[in-house]
Design a protein around this nucleic acid. Structure first.
Lengths: 208, 208
DNA sequence: CGCGAAGCGATTGTCAACAATATGAGCACC
DNA sequence: GGTGCTCATATTGTTGACAATCGCTTCGCG
């Protein structure tokens, strides 16, 4: 059976993968064919993705991929700065010995990836670090918000990763975050995470 | 004609007004009658409110008012602490002379309300202060998130306002926020707002 | 009397057809 | 050649009807 949450998840994955261009129209009939679903399910999926901020709808003109401007990407990053700061602080408070091992392992692999010039690997580790911190922090509300905002940023995230020399700067900041969390110092962890995302915001500004 | 956004807005208003109890079932047919709408529109409205976190749905068992536990209310307040901190800082940066006048006016009326023992008036002014700051900050993303989280908190907010001696403590904190914003000091404004919401969180914890 | 199966009413989930609307092409007219 | 109008077409919005499912009651059987 074709579950409507399945259509929603597949469509979201396709959007995050970059299968659709910003402002591209999402014609319901086409999506039905693409996902082998009924129009009813597609419609429900679209409504959900509107709520997630990935899709926008206009009365009688259907749905299209929402375009996130650079200004909005900066706003989103400003929120992420404070919310992920909270996540980092809380991870520092709740850290177990096993968590510490995981984090230092990610840090080591990050350094290896940067030294080896493996940009794609580093990008994956970046995602892994942030999501591991969220896992450690166990803050459901924060996780939901960060996940949603992250989804809206995918396209800009890609642009970020292509800025030359970015990974070296980013690596040092990530190591500072890991160090503070492993030291179980919430204030330092929050400050380090905020410093990291502040630098992301500065790069975004420089792209304007 | 009965617009489905209209049903959604009315239903949301009813929930925020406290017309429904937590965990109360929302039977589609009843809502149709109550709002004079078709089931189609009610269904779409419910789906939107699920996304807003006010309603929850279970397969084949329909929708009910989502109950927000005290723990979750604390989590939500932790997010609000950092996001409204950002809003306050940004309001301090963007403040105009007219804005300053509005804020000091709200502060003066707050003090009068507390001195006069008018709890309801003070509660309204509280909401007005926070929303005025959001207006001044003009941070769309933050506003959306705060509005959503605030909606989920209504019931607990009510409990808060009934804590004896709360308004005197709260007044001083609000005045500190206003003072810092009017002084155009972003860091002080953020700190003052965080201190304010920290105290809200402590009261919530004490209720557990 | 206890227990499980079957039936029932209430409610939600799904559908295919129909209505309403926007968009763009073709045409008359200036 | 340009401009505004009309109409065809593609697409979305809405409907009432029907199917599926749930929780509960009742009934049969040991």
């Amino acid at each position: 059976m074709v579950d409507d949450t399945q259509v929603r998840d597949e469509l979201r994955a396709a959007i995050l993968r970059g299968d659709f261009a910003p402002r591209q129209r999402l014609v319901e009939a086409d999506l039905c064919e693409q996902f082998g679903a009924r129009r009813f399910a597609v419609r429900a999926a679209l409504q959900d993705l509107v709520a997630e901020g990935l899709v926008e709808r206009q009365q009688n003109r259907g749905a299209r991929i929402r375009e996130i401007s650079l200004d909005e990407a900066i706003e989103i990053s400003e929120i992420r700065r404070v919310v992920e700061g909270l996540v980092a602080a809380r991870a520092a408070e709740r850290l177990t010995a096993a968590d510490a091992k995981r984090l230092t392992g990610i840090g080591r692999r990050m350094r290896e990836a940067v030294d080896g010039g493996e940009a794609a690997v580093y990008s994956d580790l970046n995602a892994e670090l942030h999501s591991t911190l969220r896992e450690i922090a166990r803050h459901e509300t924060a996780n939901r918000i960060v996940a949603q905002l992250h989804g809206q940023m995918v396209r800009h995230q890609f642009a970020l990763s292509r800025v030359p020399g970015r990974s070296a700067v980013s690596l040092a900041q990530h190591e500072a975050v890991i160090e503070a969390v492993v030291a179980r110092d919430p204030d330092a962890a929050e400050a380090a995470m905020r410093a990291h995302i502040t630098s992301v915001i500065e790069v975004l500004r420089s792209l304007g």
